[in-house]
Amino acid sequence: MNFLTDSFFSALLLIWTLDHNLIEIIGVSLKVSSISTFISALVGVPSGFLIAFSDFKGKRLVITILNTLLALPTVVVGLFVYAFISRKGIFGAYDLLYTQKAMIIGQMILIIPIVTTFTISAVSRIDDRYRKAALTLGANLRQTAWVIIREARFGIMAAVVLAFGRVIAEVGISMMLGGNAKGFTRTMTTAMALEYDKGEFVLSVALGIVLLSASFAVNIFCNYFQGKGRTSN
């Protein structure tokens, strides 16, 4: 027990003194996760909107596949992307393996289904009268789409925040595609795994505290947006 409390207090000290090593790792984590979330939102939100509002053959199949992808294990994504970007893969020539770009690609594959699926459900919940009201007031298709997205904004924001929470906490993709290179691809989760292997718990516990706080913040945001969506509809 002493060991845990000792590690905990040393960890707090690390956070308090803004330890260089710690800040660097948090920086890489935040950068990679933010970029992958941002690009995934750019792809996932419009896709979700289009899927929700268009009628095409196989729509149900697409939704079923997306729902299945929600449970995608990170190691499977890691393996899959590795097959493409390793030296022997078809994109081997681009030298992507063990870079932040590779991690971003893997994380995007992980969370695009999350953003898309939750956008579909957020947009589908919006009353059809909004669409009709916008059209009868003279809106063109783009303006009508904007009205609906605006009404679904809290649900869509919740989807994006949820996706960010998923990538900041994942370890499989970062480890397999990033390689845990200090200062380049070492994230909070991969660093924790490494420190654990070394038997050095102080940095691990400090990162754990930061990660938990990040998850807590993500959940607060998520709850806030979902709550706002409920009260305003």
């Binding site: 909004y130 009709k132 009868t136 003279g138 009404e151």
Partner: peptide, 11 residues
């Protein structure tokens, strides 16, 4: 322009 029976106003 149509005003629906239960009109919906934008949020």
């Amino acid at each position: 322009v149509l005003v629906q029976q239960h009109p919906i106003l934008f949020t």
